[in-house]
Design a protein around this nucleic acid. Structure first.
Lengths: 253, 253
DNA sequence: CCTTTCGAACATTAGTAATGTTCGTTACGG
DNA sequence: CCGTAACGAACATTACTAATGTTCGAAAGG
């Protein structure tokens, strides 16, 4: 069992039952108590759970966004396929604005090998491009990194977006429905997404099916702004139909 | 012998004699020819040297800036001491603009542990802050990363600088003398440094003694703009005296 | 056309990270 | 104030990964 697998198990167990003791988790995972303690420290540092004497407790009593460290390992296959489709929709030479989020990070991995100009809105993606120099040209937006993901937000980000125009924006989302439009968990994020959409000629949305029909609390804009949505087979059919009715081209991979 | 040591040896041998064969380098380092070939590929990718059949050739026939990958391992001790002194000159709570360069990267390492707001002008430093969350607040400037170091340049960087004001700017340099002022190897870099100096109330310069009295080709500004210079004992005494005469406080560590 | 160099593929080694164990210290409950 | 359980530092051990060396067929140069 890999390190990440065990972390996932622990996080799930703690979230499902609201809390767990070190002993229980050691039994569940087959690891020693010491290892569990170290894992709990790591997860607590990532904001996944709260450490208490004898075990750990969930932090997610409110309907919050799950921590990035966890989301990154969920539905990786679907994200890869979605990212591949997005990459296929992009032509060589385009200038591309890349939103934050785990799905967009997969898109970044693919775009590294393409002769395109990319401005990523998360530090994680910036690192990706900076570490492995490829044919792609990197432009870094200003801003203040938010949370573990390094999503860039704030006036500097908005100013960077206002100063540039892109052929294509690849947007991720926390919630999307025909009725409530595109929504995000965070007000600052929503402002950035709004500006991103305004700075690009063509808007692609990349999101797994679980986000469709859901509504987060910060409103970004109506679904009619979105030209193409790439999602996976878990997306509810009625929601897809509604979005297509509103003028968005939907691709399921 | 560590990997980096061997790379240093190879780079030095190639630079000193203008070129070397794989056999010579294998003999010099005690490693196998295959390892040398792999090293040469790596160094060529970093722009340290040029690969030719049978060996490698130096690229530095003109008076260019040595590659970042090499500079990072030179005079590390002096850079650490200079960085420590710079850190001591900074008070908790300040907002700090941090230039690109290897010396400033050492300053970044120390500032991570301090409750300050930092905007680094290189991606390497941005990574440093993003990876290890500490008490420091990170602000990312926009821009296009230049070369291996990730020095941010261009209109987005200048716009980010124009939008903000800092308590202190920590500037690195390629050349500094009382007669020719502060100079850089690259025009874009020089423009960024100029804007950085204009955006801060107090200007600290961190540079090893080897840069004093030297002049690179892109002019940034006169030495009178600089409030404090921190350098090491290898700095020529006459140059220090001249800079002090022009109004700069010089600290030797 | 021959020689030398190159680099892919695998074997081997060195180095590093993860895990487990022990044991003294610390925090909570009575 | 004491006892018990939990904690975490320090070390031993294991597992993994990266680095290096070897071999050999292919490719480049003269």
């Amino acid at each position: 069992m890999s390190n990440a697998d065990r972390h996932g198990l622990i996080a799930k167990a703690v979230r499902d039952s609201g809390g767990a003791t070190v002993q229980e988790l050691a039994e569940l995972t087959g690891a020693s108590e010491m290892t569990i303690r170290r894992d709990l420290d790591t997860l607590a540092a990532q904001g996944v759970l709260e450490r208490v004497r004898g075990g750990a407790r969930t932090l997610l009593l409110r309907g919050e966004e799950p921590p990035f460290a966890l989301r990154a390992h969920e539905a990786v296959d679907a994200k890869r396929r979605i990212a591949a489709e997005i990459s296929a929709l992009v032509a060589d030479g385009e200038s591309i604005l890349l939103d934050s989020g785990t799905t967009c990070l997969e898109v970044a991995r693919l775009l590294r090998e393409r002769p395109v100009t990319v401005m990523p809105l998360s530090l994680q993606a910036v690192h990706l491009f900076a570490e492995t120099p490829g044919p792609a040209t990197l432009v870094v937006p200003g801003g203040q990194p938010r949370a573990a993901e390094g999503a860039l937000t704030g006036p500097l980000t908005l100013a960077s977006l206002a100063a540039l125009r892109f052929d294509t924006a690849v947007i991720g989302c926390c919630g999307l429905s025909a009725a409530d439009g595109l929504t995000a968990y965070d007000l600052d994020d929503a402002a950035v997404k709004k500006a991103a959409i305004a700075s690009a000629r063509r808007i692609l949305v990349a999101t797994d099916g679980g986000k469709l029909g859901r509504t987060a609390y910060a409103y970004v804009g109506p679904s009619s702004l979105l030209h193409t949505l790439v999602t996976d087979a878990t997306a509810p059919a009625d929601e897809i139909a509604a979005l297509e009715g509103a003028g968005t081209l939907v691709k399921t991979v």
